[in-house]
Design a protein around this nucleic acid. Structure first.
Lengths: 214, 214
DNA sequence: GGCGCAATGTATACACCGTCCACACCAAGC
DNA sequence: GCTTGGTGTGGACGGTGTATACATTGCGCC
């Protein structure tokens, strides 16, 4: 129905040229609108102007395509974090800069969940494997993925003497948990209907709790 | 294949007798094993020994069945929380009892995620509506659903002067976020592979952060 | 006690999905 | 220029959710 809008004019060449990327782009577009369950092989091939089975030349199966989309979503989040960190650190030094880094990571995370719910759910709602292991496909400009960006922010905190070295181990898990949980509640939990201003307040309070309670 | 094991002997009566409940039970069984995406209408009807369309006499569509399963999962969690609270409060009074209540809620939540991952994902991985509104289908013996149980625990905390009245509003959201986020990370995030003992440590630390940082 | 209706279960059918297999095309290298 | 292997096509199968029409039967009313 509405999907027909995405129908392409028939290709003139037998070979597509860059089908893998086209399928990935289509998958990302689908995920943005409908989350992971909307990443449908056949629809992606339709949008690429190609027969369903062509996808199997580039992805082992639907799951593989979904993982690729997920990696792209993580990369987008990483990039957003890097930008926000650069913005918040502007003109700050030492202790203030370290604190700003952590805030920026959390803020960017929560904003990403709000502004790109489909990609966010794709990034974290799919049992995909590794956030700990590095893989350029899910990293930002710095080569670090979201989880690693948080880790470095915590390292900064230690260096600035804002976090005792003793409490550094596993701190990323605790911090991540808090922010991630809130994002989920806002996205598809009981906080969905709350006015944005109240949500912002809760976000600030949560970030404060993390800073204080870590 | 393996599902054939659940095939029932053919019914002798034309009417099933309690099909709605049978479908719900089948749905719960499916969710326990495979999470929300495993709650498949046709398979549920198969297990109930009935033709696929029969389900539509009792549920508007697959989504409706899934919501019913979700409500049951929430009810199971609520019951687990009530039990754990009763256990931890045994012999305690006043301040200690209040603190125990909150701990129990968090502990039960995290354990439920670990021991019933399928139901947990069904309860919280599906964009279902209301955790705030009361509905007996998702409540435990006390008639309160998980979210409301947390709220009452926080009220206790205020009464015991462990939480300043001023910080009471929205506290449930912050506390819930932290615990919920950790549960998700353990279930399908980067913490999946960690040894159980380390996870327990992180759980304890997170609960401590909540108590302290609230 | 029997009748009729509404509730419940069945039969058939459609569109969509992921995926397998055999085949068609075509670009690049010997 | 012929082969070969990578890429896209065609057709098919079994699975899913769901609509529409039909069969059966328990229950309430006379």
């Amino acid at each position: 129905m509405m999907d027909a809008m995405y129908q392409l004019p028939p290709r003139r060449t037998y070979h597509h040229g860059d089908l893998r990327q086209a399928l990935l782009d289509a998958g990302i577009a689908l995920a943005r609108v409908g989350g992971p369950e909307a990443v449908v092989l056949r629809e992606a091939t339709r949008r690429a102007g190609v027969v369903p089975n062509a996808a199997y030349r580039h992805f082992a199966n639907r799951q593989a395509l979904l993982q690729a989309v997920r990696a792209a979503a993580l990369a987008a989040l990483a990039t957003a974090m890097e930008k926000e960190r650069a913005r918040q650190r502007r003109g700050k030094h030492g202790v203030d800069a370290a604190r700003a880094s952590l805030r920026a990571i959390g803020t960017a995370y929560l904003r990403f969940a709000r502004t790109e719910p489909g990609l966010f759910r794709t990034a974290f709602g799919v049992p995909g494997d590794p956030e700990t292991t590095a893989h350029p496909a899910m990293a930002g400009k710095s080569g670090l993925n979201p989880f690693q960006l948080l880790s470095t922010a915590l390292d900064e905190l230690v260096q600035a003497d804002l976090l005792p070295k003793k409490r550094r181990p596993d701190a990323e898990y605790v911090a991540w948990s808090a922010v991630h949980g809130l994002a989920m509640l806002v996205l598809e939990g009981p906080l969905r209907r709350l006015p944005r201003t109240q949500i912002r307040g809760i976000e600030q309070r949560l970030l404060a709790m993390v800073e204080k309670g870590l």
